[in-house]
Design a protein around this nucleic acid. Structure first.
Lengths: 119, 119
DNA sequence: ATAGGGTTTGAACTTAGGTTCAAGGTCAAG
DNA sequence: CTTGACCTTGAACCTAAGTTCAAACCCTAT
């Protein structure tokens, strides 16, 4: 498949695919006679996997590590659980931080409303 | 006060203060004979205000808007409540998103543990 | 053969919030 | 009078995840 076809199939832009290649997140494409990139259908699943991982909060750097591991020797179930657990901890920290922010903002609003009503 | 003094007093770097000036977040400093920036003590409070606002989730762009308003005609209590309420909504959205992520990650971990135990 | 669409490359641009650097000017102390 | 600490400027650099651009090449349909 040509880059435009696979991009459409996976729902990403062609520039993004080239970018992933530059960054080593996906393997360099096989080239046709004309120099065009030629992709196997399996890349569609990989691109979708990348999107999924990103939406869970994994950076491309983190994803690249897994992808490379996939190339060499696929990531094990235990390793996947490890990675997800670590990310879960990070996400929990983000939630806690955001909640703290929320509390502070609410407190400030309360203060200002007091001031408006009384002072 | 010289830039180094005020930076130390406010707990920020001198480069940050110059950066804020470049961006129009704080007013251009008055200059002494030697060309050195000369700051009034009030800037300490302003710098602390900026840090506070940032830690509540306001961007420098948003803060700049308020600062400019402060220069011209101070922001009203009602306006402050408005801004904070809007930010509260944004923070709530971030929390909701992060929680959704958390749920998805937990679900995935659960799936993988099932697979490990059974499959 | 020519217009259009798709592809190639490398390089520059984007947002955010700064930091770091180089080259030079200033000031107080010893 | 020189050393060291501070100040000045503009410009480049940083992370993240791409996008956009220019100039050129390829392919297909008319």
């Amino acid at each position: 498949m040509k880059i435009g076809e696979i991009a459409k199939a996976a729902g990403v832009t062609t520039s993004r695919i080239r970018f992933y290649e530059r960054r080593g997140i996906i393997a360099p494409a096989v080239r046709g006679e004309n120099g065009y990139r030629d992709y196997p259908e399996e890349l569609i699943a990989i691109l979708r996997f990348i999107e999924q991982a990103q939406s869970l909060g994994f950076s491309l750097k983190e994803i690249a590590g897994v992808e490379i591991a996939e190339g060499e020797h696929p990531i094990s179930c235990d390793e996947a659980i490890q990675l997800l657990s670590k990310k879960l901890t990070a996400v929990d920290a983000i939630i806690a931080e955001a909640k703290a922010r929320e509390r502070r903002i609410k407190a400030l609003i309360g203060e200002l409303q007091e001031r408006k009503a009384q002072g």
